[in-house]
C-alpha cells in the first residue's frame, strides 16, 4: 500500500512539467525511501533520473515496493486540475491497476479525487556509477536557462568551455556566433545567485542544444543548477529538490 501526501501539489506539477516532453511513459518506483523514476527519452540520448525523497512528503507510507507505470501525458492532464497550493495525495494498492490522485483545497472543504489507469511498462534500468568530473559549475538555474535559450537561436550546438577562472557558453551558427562568459562570484546576500566554478582540468564540450532545451524545463524546481562535465562522458545537469533531485545525463557530441 502506498500513501504519499504532499503539502502542495506544486512540486509534482513542476516535476511532471520538467520531464513530460522528454519521456512519455515511465515507471514511478515507490519504496519506503521515496519515489524514483529513471527513463530515457525517445531519441535515447537523454537519461532522466528523479528521486523524490520521503522527506518531500507531508506524510509517506509504502510498506511494499510498488511500481506505478504512468503515461505522463495522462498524469499531466489530471495534475493540472489541482491548485498548486492544494494538498496532493497519491494512493495505490500493492500491484495496483490504478493510482488515486486526491487534491484537497486548504481553505474550502473541497476534495477532488481522480483515478489514473496504470500501464505495465518494462523497466530497462541503466546502472549509473559514480563518475569522475573534470569541472563542476553551480549557477542560477534561470540564468542557465536564459543563456542556453539565447544561444540556441544561433546554432543547434552549444559549446561549454571551462578554464581556471571562467566558463564560456558558445554558439557558432550560419548567420553568426554568440559567446557568454561567466566568472565565479559569491553573492553574500543571495547565495543562490552565486556562480561557483570548480575545475580539475580544462574542458571543452559540445552538446545538442535541443536536448539542453529539454533539460532547462527543470528550472522551476530549483533556484540553482549544478552542471558536471567530463571529457567524452555524459554531462550531469542536476536540479536539487527539497529532498531528492532531478538529474539529466547528456553525452557530448564528438567526432567519431
Amino acid at each position: 500500500m502506498l500513501e504519499g501526501k504532499f503539502e502542495e501539489s506544486s512540486l509534482m506539477k513542476k516535476v511532471v512539467d520538467a520531464i513530460k516532453d522528454s519521456v512519455k511513459l515511465c515507471n514511478f518506483n515507490c519504496t519506503e525511501h521515496g519515489v524514483t523514476v529513471q527513463a530515457v527519452d525517445d531519441s535515447r540520448v537523454l537519461l532522466i533520473s528523479l528521486l523524490i525523497g520521503e522527506a518531500s512528503f507531508e506524510e509517506y507510507r509504502c510498506d511494499r515496493n510498488i511500481t506505478l507505470g504512468i503515461d505522463l501525458e495522462s498524469f499531466n492532464k489530471i495534475i493540472k486540475n489541482g491548485n498548486s497550493s492544494d494538498f496532493l495525495t497519491l494512493i495505490a494498492e500493492d500491484s495496483p491497476d490504478n493510482v488515486l490522485i486526491i487534491f484537497e483545497d486548504k481553505k474550502k472543504d473541497r476534495v477532488s479525487e481522480y483515478s489514473l489507469k496504470l500501464m505495465d511498462l518494462d523497466s530497462d534500468f541503466l546502472q549509473i556509477d559514480d563518475m569522475e568530473f573534470d569541472a563542476t559549475i553551480t549557477m542560477p538555474s534561470s540564468e542557465f536557462a536564459k543563456i542556453t535559450r539565447d544561444l540556441k537561436t544561433l546554432s543547434e550546438s552549444l559549446q561549454i568551455i571551462v578554464t581556471k577562472e571562467n566558463v564560456k557558453f558558445s554558439s557558432d551558427g550560419d548567420f553568426g556566433t554568440g559567446n557568454v562568459v561567466l566568472k565565479g562570484f559569491v553573492d553574500m546576500d543571495k547565495p543562490d545567485e552565486s556562480i561557483k566554478i570548480d575545475m580539475a582540468r580544462p574542458i571543452n564540450l559540445t552538446f545538442g542544444a535541443k536536448y539542453i532545451a529539454d533539460i532547462v524545463k527543470g528550472t522551476s524546481l530549483s533556484e540553482s543548477v549544478t552542471i558536471k562535465l567530463a571529457d567524452k562522458s555524459p554531462a550531469l545537469f542536476e536540479y536539487k529538490l527539497p529532498s531528492g533531485f532531478l538529474r539529466f545525463y547528456l553525452a557530448p557530441k564528438f567526432d567519431e
Partner: peptide, 14 residues
C-alpha cells in the same frame, strides 16, 4: 559533423 551518441553507450543495463 560531430555526432550525438546515444546514452546507453555509457550506462550498461543492470
Amino acid at each position: 559533423m560531430p555526432e550525438q551518441p546515444s546514452i546507453s553507450r555509457f550506462f550498461k543495463s543492470s
